[in-house]
């Protein structure tokens, strides 16, 4: 982790230092994701790749308030959450390139990143499958008597799956320290939300259940930070779960290579307005905490770091093939 760490939990608006840290993280994610896209096209990264370009604000604002001991779960679109939670870029990139030095030694790839040391408990490849897993981490934290929390990221598509309501009911009933962070990009895979449900806002899906719920503009980083910090403080204080809905936009298709014919394309102009990085930079300039030349420097630093990560990953060998059969079971027992 190269960036400075600000983990004060405060319900006030984030300070300029916090915002600069978030901007740094967002540039690291953006640079990382753009490179992954290029490597996929060059066939150095293979398999199914879902990029989080456009979603950096949510990942940064949520994960930068967490500790290594807090568990984060993500889904198939996981790179940004992992990077924001502090997984090293080089080993994360090496995993996507199927190398021995990868976070999971090349066994998992894009949809199955895990970094226990940094509290990134993992990505899962089946929509919604991570939600009950996060409840389990929250239950363990509660039983250990710590104030650790679990955070699970999922898309609006997961909300129509049965395990969503099963999990909301149990988390609420047991007052589990779990934060449900929904990135509502309006699309479940390839179809718009209106084809999936009559309920537009995900926060309204949990309306029947007695837990706090907030909907924010996911491209407005400060807003995400403040809303999440309030819910996080409650969860740490033992007051139970909450749902944070972040309205976002998926800049890329569902997966890399998706012909993406089912959506209205966002105009460049429109995206300039929405892009969470550009928005934060404009706000920074207006408020005076961001110098005119800082964004270019942050971007350059992030790209240089990603260059190093790629070089490191390329130098890592492919795994010894026999490991494919050797790791099926854990050797441990109690």
């Amino acid at each position: 982790m190269t960036a400075s760490v600000h983990r004060d939990v405060s319900t006030a608006a984030p300070t300029p230092d916090v915002l600069r840290d978030l901007l740094t993280t967002m540039w690291r994610i953006r640079a990382f994701e753009e490179r992954v896209g290029a490597l996929k096209r060059a066939d150095e990264v293979h398999g199914l790749i879902h990029l989080s370009i456009g979603g950096e604000g949510v990942a940064a604002a949520v994960c930068r308030q967490l500790r290594d001991g807090d568990a984060v779960y993500s889904g198939h679109r996981a790179h940004g959450h992992a990077v924001a939670k502090g997984t090293p870029l080089d080993r994360t990139m090496a995993e996507l390139m199927g190398r021995e030095g990868g976070l999971c030694s090349g066994m998992g790839g894009s949809m199955h990143l895990v970094d226990v040391a940094h509290g990134f408990l993992g990505a899962t490849g089946v929509v919604g499958g991570n939600i009950p897993l996060a409840l389990g981490s929250a239950l363990a934290a509660k039983q250990r008597g710590t104030d650790a929390v679990a955070v699970v990221f999922f898309g609006d598509g997961a909300v129509q799956a049965g395990l969503f309501t099963e999990s909301v009911n149990l988390a609420t009933l047991w007052r589990l320290p779990v934060l449900l962070v929904c990135e509502n990009n309006g699309f479940a895979e390839f179809t718009p939300r209106s084809a999936h449900t009559t309920v537009e806002r995900v926060s309204d899906v949990v309306a029947p259940y007695p837990l706090p719920r907030t909907t924010v503009d996911g491209n407005e980083v400060g807003e995400v930070w403040s809303a999440f910090s309030e819910l996080l403080a409650r969860a740490r204080a033992g007051e139970g779960p909450a749902l944070l809905e972040c309205l976002t936009h998926r800049l890329r298709g569902h997966y890399e290579g998706d012909p993406d014919r089912y959506r209205e394309a966002v105009s460049t102009e429109d995206w300039q307005r929405k892009d969470p990085i550009l928005r934060l930079q404009r706000a920074g300039h207006d408020a005076g905490w961001l110098a005119a030349d800082e964004p270019a420097a942050l971007e350059a630093a992030a790209r240089a770091e990603v260059d190093e990560a790629v070089a490191w990953a390329r130098s890592s060998p492919f795994p010894a093939v026999a490991r494919a059969a050797a790791l099926v079971e854990s050797g441990g027992a109690r």
Partner: peptide, 10 residues
């Protein structure tokens, strides 16, 4: 496994 050499191996 994700990585191609291991995928081929099994």
């Amino acid at each position: 496994a994700y990585s191609k050499p291991m995928e081929d191996f099994v």
